[in-house]
């Protein structure tokens, strides 16, 4: 290692304690034998200390603290409310931040959120349990079951994980920008990240992604593949405490909603099929279908889909 290499490649990491053991040993050795770089390292550490002093942590004002504690109390109170009330609240736009941040959001308008909530409410209030009438075999559903079983023990994502999920569980997906925790991909950032939604779109597939975090599911991986006849298909695996949801999205111009749905929610229909719960959605353009399949009860799937509604196709 020469001085130039040390300074450009190692110095910062050395001062920050970020070098891997081998690199660290090499850096230590160089510094031990090189007074110039030794001085650089000392200076780098001094600079760190100066930044720490120059940009010190500021105490939050007392009135802000009490405002926040009040808001936490309020959140505790509301957590005791029934799920329908929470759902309506969840669908409502988040309270705007300060005046400068408030305006340019793309969250669903309150009226729309209320309408969706009402639609769910009506749908759930009038269950149409004709599941006794067994559905004749549906090839697409059979495919979904086959993949669901396969993915139980083996799912190999081929879309890079860091592209759509981070430590905090923030999901970088092209979902409704209702919740900033779920980082929404943005064209403005397009050079920065190649996220899951973008990977699907680049395979000419809709970014069929659901924000199931509220329901306790995280995106565990995404995979773009081809069906036997060459059609591209996107698989997304959602994992939660209660199990898994697999989504399949592909072009299927001939598919029509099978008779025997348990319920409907806009363009989505819900089925109980061979022990699985299935949500079938038709994308309004391009003859794409989306199938969500899970082992959890169909009513639960309805609730979670309603809360997650990604592209508004249940509107």
């Amino acid at each position: 290692m020469d001085c130039r290499e040390y300074i450009s490649e190692y110095l910062a990491g050395h001062a920050d304690g970020e070098l891997a053991p081998l690199a660290r040993r090499a850096a230590d050795e160089h510094v031990a034998g090189c007074p110039i770089c030794r001085a650089q390292l000392i200076e780098e550490r001094a600079l760190k200390a100066m930044v720490r002093q120059g940009a010190a942590i500021v105490k939050a004002p007392a009135d802000l603290k009490s405002r926040i504690r009040g808001a936490l109390d309020e959140a505790d109170r509301r957590a005791a409310a029934p799920w329908t009330a929470r759902l309506i609240e969840f669908l409502a736009p988040v309270r705007a931040l300060g005046s400068r941040i408030s305006e340019p959001l793309v969250w669903a308008p309150a009226s729309l959120a209320a309408a969706i909530a009402a639609a769910i409410w009506i749908a759930l209030a009038v269950p149409q349990h004709d599941s006794v009438a067994t559905i004749p075999p549906v090839p697409e559903f059979e495919l979904a079951i086959d993949r669901f079983k396969q993915f139980q023990h083996e799912f190999v994502p081929n879309v890079p994980a860091e592209a759509y999920e981070n430590e905090t569980g923030a999901v970088y997906a092209w979902v409704i920008n209702r919740d900033p925790v779920h980082r929404v991909a943005d064209e403005a950032d397009s050079d920065a990240f190649n996220d899951l939604a973008r990977s699907y779109r680049s395979a000419n597939l809709p970014d069929d992604l659901f924000d199931f975090m509220q329901a306790g599911y995280m995106i565990a991986g995404g995979r773009v593949d081809r069906l036997a006849d060459g059609r591209p298909i996107a698989y997304t695996l959602y994992k939660g405490m209660a199990g898994q949801i697999v989504s399949l999205c592909f072009h299927d111009p001939t598919m029509a909603a099978p008779i025997g749905a348990v319920n409907w929610l806009g363009l989505r229909s819900f089925y109980e099929y061979k022990g699985y719960s299935i949500c079938l959605s038709f994308y309004p353009t391009g003859h794409f279908i989306s199938i969500l399949i899970t082992r959890m009860p169909v009513m639960q799937l309805m609730r979670d889909v309603a809360a997650a509604d990604p592209s508004g196709i249940s509107r």
């Binding site: 500021v58 105490k59 939050a60 405002r67 926040i68 808001a71 936490l72 931040l97 941040i101």
Partner: peptide, 29 residues
């Protein structure tokens, strides 16, 4: 970590009102 959040919010928002809102939103979330 409230103070750490607030300091960062202040730096990002660059005015105390927005920093307060940003901090509160962060904590609640």
């Amino acid at each position: 970590h409230l103070d750490a959040v607030y300091s960062t919010a202040l730096r990002l928002a660059r005015n105390p009102d927005d920093a307060n809102d940003l901090t509160q939103e962060t904590i609640l979330r």
